[in-house]
Nucleic acid binder design. Structure first.
Lengths: 250, 250
DNA sequence: GGTAGGGTATGACGTAGGGTTAGGGTCAAG
DNA sequence: CTTGACCCTAACCCTACGTCATACCCTACC
């Protein structure tokens, strides 16, 4: 009867010695024999079991689950596999979303476009984004209505691109909230912001005056209540200053 | 100036208090003030920083990376995002493969079909599977050649299904290696195995005799050398007995 | 019989991102 | 003065091992 010591088995199975030690300790795979001096010796059964372990491990099962699975003959394989599939599908969907957002962010950074607060909170818990939208609709019903009309005219791709650009822009602005609102770097971002607003809100009439008015809204005490339940006067006032300066000097 | 205590901030941002403690400890987000008795108080800046942290966290960045990213103004965002995208694509591809294999396994278990040793090792380190194939070609060149011809006639879907079924069948057989080779449960699996072999090896002539011959090969001492570099007489003999019994009594 | 080289053992710490008690101070309301 | 809500730190728990540190075992060669 062939017997293998740890290193041999490790090499055959393509795992580390440490892994075998670990599996031994947690009871997932124990050697068939211990020599007098304590060496682990594994036989054929252990070899096969290890192969099964590795199979399920590749399937991303947890070791604990694998142990149950291999030790309980009545284990409901199909159910476990279906559960596992569900998890994988969720992971996959999440990765898909992340990739989308990543692409947009990369595109923005490369093309130096614009960005939006709605998108700034994209990826955060949904409740926050929804709270934000609700608040925006309460505060600026006309603009939101018009904006929605505009958005509905866009193709999904245009819409996504626009959101991504606005999001990145807003993020940059947030990161520059401690700088001079009149500085060229801030004003460049504000220019992008303005062009975005033009497309996004699309309010007819005097765009520059509307933009200043929007700046005043930014300065409102409860500006950030929408997203997180708390006021944020500092950033609001920063935006107000930057937007007014832009409107007066563009 | 508004100040928030841990729980308030935690609620606003949708994270746990423990998380804020953690971020404080690792220096990712420290409170602007500590009261005399040690309470953490956060201001607007911290709030914004936390939002940025959560944004990147949703992108699956590590906290360490987020810290660098937020603290180093010269951080190469585009490069980081592209790297990250690459990682995500790899993860996604891996999940896709896992889902495929899962579907096949589920299908097999539901339909009680057959399985293959090649697929048994699917998901294991590639070297093993390759070693197995190489060995198979050395040992049974004619059969392997014929088999490959047969396989090339199949559509990819047929081929994948066949492999999946054979894989699941073989796995079940491995798990029953300690039972009676003549028992009905084993013989049912062997029947599936036989039908698979018919399709897979497709050897012309007397299929039953060929099957018995294949059983003899299974019994060879070095049967499992192909997959893991070690003999496995127990399983090989089990298969031989089961296959011979089937061939004689089907 | 000494020693060099390789294999083996245990034990303990580290990882990421917190969850989960445990034990104890703080603060405002009733 | 008590209750309840909130705050603190310390410390163990989780996954699946990697990475030492220290020490024992075994074989071969001289």
């Amino acid at each position: 009867m062939a017997q293998y010591a740890v290193k041999k088995l490790a090499e055959m199975a393509g795992v580390s010695v440490r892994t075998l030690h670990h599996y031994d300790r947690i009871g997932l795979l124990q050697p068939s024999v211990r020599t007098e001096v304590g060496y682990r010796l594994y036989g054929e059964k252990e070899l096969l079991r290890l192969q099964q372990i590795l199979f399920y491990k590749e399937m991303d099962f947890e070791l604990k689950t694998i142990a149950e699975l291999l030790d309980d003959p009545d284990f409901d394989m199909v159910k476990a596999l279906l559960d596992h599939k569900k998890n994988l599908l969720q992971k996959k969907e999440r990765i898909r979303t992340l990739l989308e957002t990543l692409d947009k962010t990369i595109d923005h950074l490369k093309n130096k476009h614009t960005m939006n607060h709605e998108d700034l909170y994209k990826g955060l818990p949904k409740e926050q984004a929804q709270a934000w939208r609700k608040e925006a609709q309460e505060r600026w019903p006309d603009q939101v209505k018009h904006s929605e009309e505009q958005l509905l005219k866009m193709s999904p791709e245009e819409f996504e691109t626009l959101k991504a650009n606005f999001s990145a822009n807003g993020q940059q602005l947030v990161s520059m909230a401690d700088k001079d609102p009149h500085s060229p770097e801030v004003q460049r971002l504000i220019a992008d912001h303005y062009h975005f607003i033009l497309q996004f809100w699309g309010k007819p009439g005097s765009p520059i005056e509307a933009y200043k008015g929007l700046g005043d809204l930014y300065a409102s005490d409860e500006r950030y209540t929408a997203a997180n339940g708390t006021p944020n006067p500092a950033f609001g006032q920063f935006m107000q200053k930057a937007m007014h300066y832009f409107a007066d000097n563009c």
